[in-house]
Design a protein around this nucleic acid. Structure first.
Length: 525
RNA sequence: GGCUCGGUAGCUCAGCUGGUUAGAGCGUGGGAUUCAUAACCCCAAGGUCGGGAGUUCAAGUCUCCCCCGAGCCA
């Protein structure tokens, strides 16, 4: 069975993680967990991109050696992802010595294909972008439009990758349905490619903090060339030799690179061409998601309105943020983080609709059935309206998660909980229970709702692993494993736990404790 | 300045190839209920679809121009 490989971008260690990288990573985590539950062997890759002049200068400014700086920042990412319960299987750093060997091997192939040529490049250079710019000639002091910083004049001979040779190949690649996703992003790439692909430089001179280009003294690899290759380095087992041919059996090609829409071009155009040049397979698709604003405004240091993921986690917890981002923002579109809406949705959906459903049902069952799950009715019926509702929710949730439509998936699961609440109100077991002859009916009702709660928890597992675990514990059940699988073990698929009737009648129910606290944010985030 | 994408109820969004009184959730107001985390359930009020012009028997849904937001490029 082919491995389902997916990646986040390798985050640049110039700064700490921000909400955007957290968003990407959370989404990937949901995909990875979902695919594991579907029985796939998954390799979920994230990591850090650590080379380049900008890093070197940032480190110098902090009085650190570049490597020391990278160690600190990349460890910060690792720690943060662990706290967010990110289930990445690999964490690659581009300063890993093995990565350097892989870059060398890859470059050798590209060079052997005749795709590396020398070219002179002179012009104004933005260190922050690590790119040559084309400022208006009249400007006496050219500056970068993005970073608003002065440009530096460079005149150097660099190595170029002959991207122009891949015009045809890239055109046919991006015309492949689904390669650029969502579809609304495709035209942008098409136009860029249609404009004619130009060779791009893959090396810099006088850049100590980078990987030296073999056979070309004085040259180091351009950060993007080196960073993209991290996706390959990450796939090799630590005990593997550095052998590009091995990658096909280690999970290459990736099924999807999940990225922010700003770096679509690198992933959908440059990267596939590099791979083709090296005689390797191209990724299955490149998904460019949208950007987050905050209360309608762009987040940025200048506005002082950045949301720090660390703080968000401390104050609100992983479930709340995961739910809000995945449930409310259509993945692929831009989204706006609004505190009021965030708390409204979390409190309503998670605490009131889902949490309270479990709480009220468990408490009735315990009260009237000796602290246990009521006996399941004899002919455990798939005709039961909640069994049917669960079936629908399962189908929609799975179909949605398969195509990264977290929003639709989350809504389907929520809908199931709403139907269970409605069922309780219709049946009113608290009235029925007053007549002894209704005992079986009450048992059947409560069993069905508890079973629905179980299924809500199971379906929630890829999105909110933590809440799902607490819910299952409340039902006296073990969590459904879907974390990083390590070397070999693929967890059992969730098809079994998703069957109606999994809850054992007569099994003890722990004392109910609210599984989801309401958010009560005194002050703005 | 060029290229993409978006601008639908207070808020987040659905509205396929143009066709009955434009939908959902949240928020708001009212009702019902007591098993439960003042929770759950039911009902209601709210939009003429960014602005303008046009095509059409008919436009939120097509064309053009303008305005606003996000990203890329310059």
């Amino acid at each position: 069975m082919p491995t389902y490989t997916l990646t986040t971008p390798l985050y640049y260690v110039n700064d700490r993680a921000h909400l955007g990288s957290t968003y990407t990573t959370l989404a990937c985590d949901a995909i990875a967990r979902f695919q594991r539950l579907q029985g796939q062997s998954v390799c979920f890759i994230t990591g850090c991109d650590e080379h380049g002049l900008k890093i070197q200068r940032t480190a110098e400014a902090a009085g650190l050696l570049p490597q020391a700086h990278c160690d600190v920042v990349s460890q910060g990412y690792r720690d943060l992802w662990r706290r967010w319960q990110i289930s990445n299987d690999r964490f690659i750093r581009t300063t890993d010595p093995r990565h350097r060997q892989l870059v060398e091997a890859f470059f050798a192939r590209v060079e052997a294909s005749g795709d590396v040529v020398e070219g002179r490049q002179q012009g104004w250079y933005c260190v922050a972008c690590e790119e040559f710019k084309d400022p208006t000639a009249s400007d006496p002091e050219p500056s970068c439009a993005i970073h608003l910083r002065p440009l530096e004049w460079r005149d150097e001979v660099n190595l170029f990758f002959r991207l122009s040779r891949y015009q045809q190949a890239i055109e046919s690649l991006i015309s492949r349905p689904g390669f650029v996703a969502p579809a609304s992003r495709r035209r942008e790439v098409e136009n860029f490619v249609a404009g004619g692909l130009k060779d791009f430089s893959i090396s810099r001179q006088n850049l100590p903090w980078g990987i030296p280009v073999p056979g070309h003294p004085g040259h180091t690899f351009y950060v993007w060339f080196d960073a993209l290759l991290g996706y390959l380095s990450a796939l090799l087992d630590p005990s593997d030799p550095i052998d590009l041919d091995l990658l096909a059996s280690r999970g290459w090609p990736a099924r999807v690179h999940v990225i922010g829409k700003d770096i679509l071009r690198f992933h959908a155009v440059f990267w596939p061409a590099m791979l083709l040049s090296a005689g390797m397979e191209v990724p299955g698709s490149v998904f460019g998601h949208g950007f987050l604003t905050r209360e309608g405004q762009k987040m940025g240091k200048s506005l002082g309105n950045v949301l720090d993921p660390e703080q968000l986690l401390d104050r609100c917890g992983t479930d709340a943020v995961r739910w809000y981002l995945l449930r409310d923002i259509p993945f692929g579109e831009d989204g706006d983080f609004q505190q009021q809406r965030f708390t409204d949705l979390v409190n309503n959906d998670l605490a009131n609709t889902i949490g309270n459903l479990l709480n009220r049902t468990s408490s009735m069952a315990r009260k009237w059935f000796a602290g246990c799950v009521p006996p399941s009715p004899d002919g455990l019926s798939m005709e039961h309206p909640l069994a049917q509702a669960a079936e629908r929710a399962r189908e929609v949730a799975i179909a949605s998660l398969e195509v990264f439509d977290f929003r639709r998936g989350a809504e389907a699961i929520l809908q199931l909980a709403i139907e269970a609440n409605g069922h309780l109100n219709d049946r009113a077991p608290w009235k029925l229970v007053k007549q002894e002859e209704n005992r079986d009916a009450v048992a059947a009702d409560l069993y069905a709702v508890l079973e629905t709660c179980r299924l809500v928890a199971v379906l929630l597992t890829p999105l909110l692993p933590d809440l799902a675990t607490r819910m299952l514990a409340q039902l006296g059940l073990e969590p459904i494993p879907c974390g990083a699988s390590g070397a070999a073990a693929v967890p059992p698929p969730w098809s079994e736990p998703l069957l109606w009737g999994g809850l054992q009648g007569g099994s003890p129910l722990p004392e109910p404790v609210p599984v989801m606290q309401k958010l009560e944010l005194e002050s703005p985030l």
